[in-house]
Design a protein around this nucleic acid. Structure first.
Lengths: 233, 233
DNA sequence: GAAACGCATTAGGTACGATGAATACAAGAG
DNA sequence: CTCTTGTATTCATCGTACCTAATGCGTTTC
């Protein structure tokens, strides 16, 4: 999205990465760097840089006399933003979306509880602002506007939790929410119940009610999971 | 741990990575590839490979005419196993350990609930075996043996959840648990209550009692958090 | 004072040669 | 016939030299 193919090696990655994560090369497949270099019409140096990056993502393993072998899916670093994007763009998008939504359902309630304890006044203000924005755009086919506020809302919650690991999941949530409105079938207007929950959550965080914030977020993420069950078996 | 400095660029990473994550180079610092290549006595090609990897970890940004600039901590990919290891080895180890433990407290209960639903008979057997091993090594200064079984136990839970994102956190949990016994002050013998909880959790998963499994895991992770509060203010 | 320009600087890219390590395979010893 | 040992192949790995491209910054120009 943001990281376009910056540099030649980036361009190579944007083709090789999705191909590997899509399973075009089954685990154990061997790729040779010079062959790849020829195929992508780049120098070996550039290809080596690309391979190094793929290696750091645990997608491949480079060994002498053997070549670049594709690692089994279970070893991939599925938390790498690049890998997440590639997989979301590929064939097993539904599967990936479910994994991420389950992850959300685990993280966000705890994050909301922490946010209720640690959120600054400014963050509380941001939160209510986002919630109001969601209310304002919840009717009349303003899906794009709603999405912006929804993403911003969850970003603030995750950041306000004070946990860097949680905060870093903002992009993932953004990707999931964005995917819901763009790729998948989205109801014409968001569920009014969900909007209400967000407003209440902003309240709970403002009042420092951690238990309520956690419970409300559980309802929100449960809704997201339910939504997913309706779309995919 | 496993990824020793394989290759020259790996060796460079093992020095530069920890230095950056330790904050030796404040955000915005500029490093020039030529200078680095000289310092580490490697060729530019090798240094460029190292920079590419650091770039893919969002630790640095490489721009023409400027150099390699260190990114602010908030942009680092804190889920990268390498980055986690580097930070755990560095100065802000306590902070990192807390973040990871909070992450555990969010993930593992949900994972345990899913495991109760999806665990195979074989995984249930492994679980009880691990629990028995924990019981057997819970007394008499057998900390190393206890650790092995503890790590294995949580690995099985995470894997049995059926969620690939959860399964991938096995290494993180292993690192946290290992750190507790090795680096930090560990009571001579593990808390008997914790051992009992693990046994009960294995039961709950075997019986498919998701709610109980989740509740028990919450108690376990709450204990881990409490333990951390005792050690660090 | 602001906009346009040119230069120095630094990453980016290519090509080619040399090195080294792991594997496959063959030859030898028991 | 089996196990060990030696050898050749093959691929990644590393280094060097040279060129290109972009861009920050100082200078000039209007």
């Amino acid at each position: 999205m943001t990281t376009g193919g910056r540099g030649l090696h980036g361009h190579v990655l944007e083709t090789l990465g999705p191909a590997i994560t899509a399973g075009d090369y089954p685990p154990g497949s061997v790729l040779r760097t010079d062959e790849l270099a020829q195929r992508f019409e780049v120098s070996r140096s550039v290809m080596r840089e690309a391979v190094r990056v793929l290696e750091s993502m645990y997608l491949v393993e480079s060994r002498r006399r053997v070549g670049v072998t594709v690692r089994p899916k279970s070893e991939w670093n599925v938390y790498d933003p690049q890998v997440i994007r590639w997989r979301l763009a590929g064939a097993d998008r539904p599967h990936q979306l479910r994994s991420l939504t389950v992850l959300r359902s685990a993280i966000e309630p705890v994050a909301a509880g922490l946010a209720a304890r640690h959120a600054t006044a400014e963050q509380c203000a941001e939160l209510t602002e986002c919630a109001l924005g969601m209310v304002a755009t919840s009717r009349g086919h303003q899906l794009e506007g709603y999405l912006v506020h929804d993403v911003a809302f969850h970003r603030v919650i995750l950041k306000a939790s004070g946990n860097e690991m949680f905060a870093r999941l903002g992009d993932v949530v953004a990707e999931v929410l964005s995917g819901r409105t763009h790729h998948d079938v989205m109801f014409e207007d968001p569920d009014p119940a969900a909007v209400t929950l967000h407003v209440q959550l902003a309240e709970a965080v403002r009042e420092g009610d951690a238990a309520r914030a956690e419970r409300l977020t559980r309802e929100i993420t449960a809704g997201a999971l339910q939504e997913l069950d309706v779309l995919a078996p």
